[in-house]
Design a protein around this nucleic acid. Sequence first.
DNA 1: ATGCCATAGTCGTCTTTGATAATT
DNA 2: AAATTATCTTTGACGACTATGGCA
Length: 705
Amino acid sequence: PATNARLQMPVAGQVELESSLGIKRKKGKVNTERNDDTGKKRCSVGSSEKKKLEEKEPEAIGDNDAAGMEWEDGHVSPVECKEGYSHDLGETVTVEFTDVPSSTEKKSVRRHTAEEKELAELMHKVHLLCLLARGRVIDKACNDPLIQHLLWNGVDTLKLDANKLRSLVNWFHRTFCIIARSADKGSFESNMAFALQSHEGTAEEVCALSVALFRALNLTARFVTNMDVVGLKPDAKAMGTPNQDGTRLSTRALPCSPVAAGHNEFNTLSPARLEVNTEHRFSRAKQRGDLGNLKRTSACKSLSKNLSNCKADQYASTSKDESSSSPNSFTSSNAEIPKRKGDVEFELQLQMALSATGAEIQEMLAATSSQSIGTLLDYTPLKKLRKNAEVASNSSAVWSRSGPPLYWAEVYCGGQTLTGKWVHVDVVNDIIDGERKVEAASAVCRKPLRYVVAFAGGGAKDVTRRYCLQWHRIVQGRVNPEWWEKVLAPLEQLELAATNDSEDMELQTRALTEPLPTNQQAYRDHHLYALEKWLHKNQVLHPKGPVLGFCKGHPVYPRSCVQTLQSRHGWLTEGLQVRENESPAKIVTRPKRIFNSQSRESNSNEDELQATTELYGKWQLEPLQLPGAVNGIVPKNERGQVDVWSEKCLPPGTVHLSKPRIFQVAKRLGIDYAPAMIGFDYRSGRCAPVYDGIVVCAEFKNAIL
DNA sequence: ATGCCATAGTCGTCTTTGATAATT
DNA sequence: AAATTATCTTTGACGACTATGGCA
């Protein structure tokens, strides 16, 4: 065989390959076994075709079954062609296609499959459980009498008021250095004790120490953390965001792991993404304008060159935007110019810039090249320079550290009134009562709020609501609430027993008093508000009012007015039926059934053939009323069956039994029964009823079983 | 930075009541 | 003679949802 033996492929197979090639943009292979029927069908490479290969004759093949098929040329590499030359049956022929980038190349983006989503959700859940367990470990350590005693160094606070708390927090902030990582001393208690001794520790440890001290002072205090959990969605973007505190280096080691190789993009930084990541860091560094801090090591020379090439200073451009856009947008009525969210974030970022540490820059440098990843893993924790922090701290409370607020304490302050208040106390960042700033600071640090959980008494409580002003922004990043509440339920009991105060009223109030979003998109599935334009096909507003406000001219309705409708059959499965004389709340069109023959004829009166479904709301319903069993006779439908769409659809006085050969048993016992039809199946191109067991009168249940 | 729209891809839902021949 | 079982065939349209990119 010559170098480029040619064979022909039916277009069907070609198309199939092209689609996959278009996605993967790699070489594709088709293995065809001689005796494999499937292979023949798909590629038509059989024994007769082998002869064609020898002759290098690109003739039509498979005359019979390929009638009407189109054929295209393909190539077989010489090596594989030789192999294919063997006359042994059972040998395989490998046809290899090389994807040539053509003009018709599609930028097809592979989407996440259901399996990947499920895996991501599982990882998310497992991670949540781990973080809950972690929180309980820390909470327990905060109760450690030895640690509490060690902390008790002459601080004599008998009564708590804001000023004394402030001095405590300030003492903590002055005394402890925050480091990115600490060596594990075997237990969290040991780590805390070591941190206490050395006056340096992770944010987690220092925060835990503060909780321990508050408890030693007989205050009711909780350890609170914004749990930094892996994403719920299989989105690698979350992994690719800049890691500011440098504590989670392990994620960068993952691309080498076999798990990562198996599940592309999962938990890994692909090279491309790493670049993006680095780019982002560049821009952040530029924004800080503190590149002078860079140590000119050999590793960073090329980097600094890159940076100097970037003439467009982001800070400058942003300032320009400010000056040009502000007069246009905000000069009309208000004397005080309102701040956009971006402005707030920018200011915070500027504050962060002032306190940027050498450690972080080094980390950034290390992440730039793949060779330096090793050094990144080895690098010794660098102390945060307190000098820098003090530069940043000014009259207004800011997050003086560059790290995101992940750990803080809540102290219960009784005050004069009966109802107390949980007060946010962050010794890491030297902030008291800054709960309204947490969300913005977290957003700036790319660690958005998702699950803020408070730990006490071995239990835990979700207090995200206290810190979240825009619930709709974070709700899509959380697991389904049923699962989460089920997990938390026993922990909440423990927490409540320890703190003896339920702030549920406060959290509930916050949940119900969210401001109206200003953009329309936010009203999609918003938990409180609704726009008519975002209603689903099976939804209506009932009643249509009151109007709570307007968004871009569209009236805003309470979400409670949105009613989800169902067809008569849909309600039937829930054991409900539509009341008499009720007219449909909405009529929607259904997809047309295709009838192969004479489709053109139906075009003329297409509108009349459009099937519709009548939908009803729950206000039009009443409990299902079915004829009950009488004298051991099961009421059946016109087909002699009982439709068991759900157990709620059983006629009164009957039961649904599903056991093998139960028909015969009922028959031999002379008991009246009816087959239970539980649904439909699509087989042979048509729907077929699916049966499962029988329905008999309840009194015969035991006899039959 | 943000909002808004279009586009494109994946997934779930809705559809909603055999015929025939062979074998037991 | 009656009952049971195997085989045939293997939808497809649309909405919801979600990334992504372009543009303002």
